[in-house]
């Protein structure tokens, strides 16, 4: 799967056709919609352990992920676009996570932050209570390594998610495309 990386010099998808007295922007509607969506992603306030501290750090002034359009963290899934699974998911939390994900409006995206959300991490062996990877419960678009990942790593994941959305390659977009075109 190729995620095309948008160069900073081309912030808007499409091309400008110069004509006397101005110009016309040529683009496809899908590209414009994906561009708009990727630059306004509202994360859900969801943190189950120490990764949430790093996520808060990434949200605060020093790292400030609202620079990239992750403007306002929403305390309700009904207003959120992206869920950052920041922390360990235990068996008792799994149904809660599923319900939160189901309550989010489409299109929705998922980032698994840190070792626990990716694979169970330090709790992979000899534990009775931990889900070995959040992707057993909900589909994940971007995985971040680290225990916990640094805020820079989370920022990289968020930007990767934006590129994925612009390329139309998130799980949600692929599923929608498949339902519409059968391919």
């Amino acid at each position: 799967m190729d995620v095309k990386v948008t160069p900073p010099s081309a912030p808007f998808p499409g091309s400008v056709q110069e004509i006397p007295g101005g110009g016309i922007v040529l683009s496809t509607l899908d590209d414009v919609i994906n561009w708009a969506r990727s630059n306004s992603l509202w994360p859900l306030v969801f943190g189950t352990s120490c990764c949430a501290i790093e996520m808060m750090s990434a949200a605060s002034a020093k790292y400030d992920f609202s620079r990239f359009g992750f403007e306002v963290a929403r305390a309700t899934p009904r207003q959120a676009d992206v869920i950052i699974i920041a922390g360990t998911i235990v068996n008792k939390m799994a149904p809660v996570l599923k319900r939160l994900f189901d309550q989010m409006p489409d299109p929705k995206y998922v980032i698994a932050m840190g070792a626990c959300a990716t694979s169970g991490g330090p709790f992979f062996y000899n534990t009775y209570s931990v889900v070995k990877g959040a992707d057993h419960v909900i589909p994940v678009d971007v995985y971040v390594a680290g225990c916990p990942p640094r805020p820079e790593a989370l920022l990289h994941a968020l930007i990767t998610l934006q590129e994925k959305i612009k390329s139309g390659l998130t799980r949600d977009q692929i599923r929608t495309q498949f339902a519409e075109n059968g391919k």
Partner: peptide, 16 residues
């Protein structure tokens, strides 16, 4: 009782 040393759970526990 999961914190007992002889607790067995073949479904959830992956032994190292």
């Amino acid at each position: 009782y999961p914190l007992r040393k002889d607790y067995e759970d073949p479904i959830n526990i992956i032994k190292l």
